[in-house]
Design a protein around this nucleic acid. Structure first.
Lengths: 220, 220
DNA sequence: TATAAGTGAGTGAGTGCTCACTTTTTTCAA
DNA sequence: TTGAAAAAAGTGAGCACTCACTCACTTATA
């Protein structure tokens, strides 16, 4: 599906990036409904008129930036999945470390996903969930099913459901870094400052212990 | 904190419930921003003017219904936590079953929480997360710490962090039942229809296997 | 009669989007 | 090389609409 006009595609990279950044910033911080198209145009130093020449509606602009960012994440996951000679445990830890890094470097992007997650807009959700989740679900399920074949992963669990639980842990962790309600919730559950760099190894260690027990066979 | 006026408190129960139901319905399905106060008044068969005599702003009405619903959930959790002679495993399963039941009976309420979770409104989140999460975090941590004392729960995990992960699993599961993006996501990860009653025992069994491995010592 | 409760048209501050217009770039014959 | 005409890109005031909230008024109750 194409959400931008040819006119937008023809723009020079710098201008495109300015518009994309402005849009992500606005949508991530205010949510789809409260985001203001006029403000996005102002932030990007273009006129509203131009913005509407590039995207035919607020919704299309939203869908465009979501699609764009999902491509970035897919890239990283693919690399981990295709790494040869890597244990399931290492792969999981690798993904976890990617997640923590992304939380810092692309906080606005994660906020955008969080917003999307709770969106009740039905015609958008079907399309978007398919685009964003199909790859990662395949990826995790494959890692787990392969692990069952090698004996690393518990044989008694359903790989699809385990992949679902695994991603739930990842998702909740991601959302807890980007501020708002879930950031406060971590503070109440565990302690101040999930997002401080000193805390990273604690989060990784505890999460790995949790996931090891949940997914892997005890080492002999 | 008191969000309703004395005038609202004096209303007869039927009218209060009508207003509360209308508000939950609107907020749950549209989200805070898109929810329409005029429509809530119409749904509740009262005038906008009256509604503003009962609650001084849209935000106050929102906070009121959130506060109200958190009390209901606290009630149920307390019962499980205080049950004597119950294994940690049984307690976790009990909570899980409560969650699945609530997902069906109070879907709108869960939607309301989901909306709240992704809210970026900063002055609301601090207050609300404290009100809603303090009890459940204490509750889960207590169950796990007691379990460590009796040897049921793994000694090598941090009870606070484990409680956090446990609730993350519960939270993701809840949100996957109420429609929208995460409902579609379950379909992609696992299969059609997480919300069909026939699927309940599968979800419970798989989730319990996952949590047993993650949290409990192997039985001897 | 006095007090409390209830009403809903109206207000004004937005907001998504349009369109008549200006500016810039490209084209190409002289 | 030039410059006029055509095409493309860009603009922002304003339109049509939405919605939180108010207030002058009516109705019910003590």
């Amino acid at each position: 599906m194409k959400y931008s006009s040819p006119r937008f595609d023809r723009l020079d990279e710098e201008k495109k990036q300015r518009i994309i950044r402005a849009a992500i910033d606005e949508f991530a911080n205010l949510g789809f409904e409260a985001a203001n198209i006029n403000k996005i145009a102002r932030k990007a130093h273009i006129s509203v008129g131009s913005l509407y020449k590039y995207f035919k509606s607020k919704k299309d602009l939203f869908l465009y930036v979501i699609q764009l960012s999902s491509d970035l994440i897919e890239e990283e996951l693919r690399a981990v999945n295709e790494a040869p000679f890597m244990s399931v445990e290492s792969k999981i830890e690798k993904v976890l470390r990617i997640i923590l890094r992304t939380n810092r470097q692309q906080a606005n992007l994660i906020r955008l996903y969080l917003e999307l997650t709770s969106s009740s807009n039905n015609d958008m959700t079907k399309l978007l969930s398919f685009n964003l989740e199909t790859f990662s679900s395949q990826c995790y399920r494959q890692i787990l099913a392969n692990g069952q074949a090698t004996g690393e992963v518990r044989a008694d669990i359903d790989p699809a459901m385990a992949a679902f639980h695994l991603d739930n842990i990842f998702l909740a962790l991601q959302y807890s870094y980007v501020g708002g309600y879930l950031y406060e919730r971590y503070r109440i559950y565990v302690k101040e400052g999930i997002d401080s760099i000193e805390n990273d190894e604690f989060v990784i260690a505890e999460t790995m212990k949790f996931l090891q027990g949940a997914l892997l066979n005890a080492k002999d």
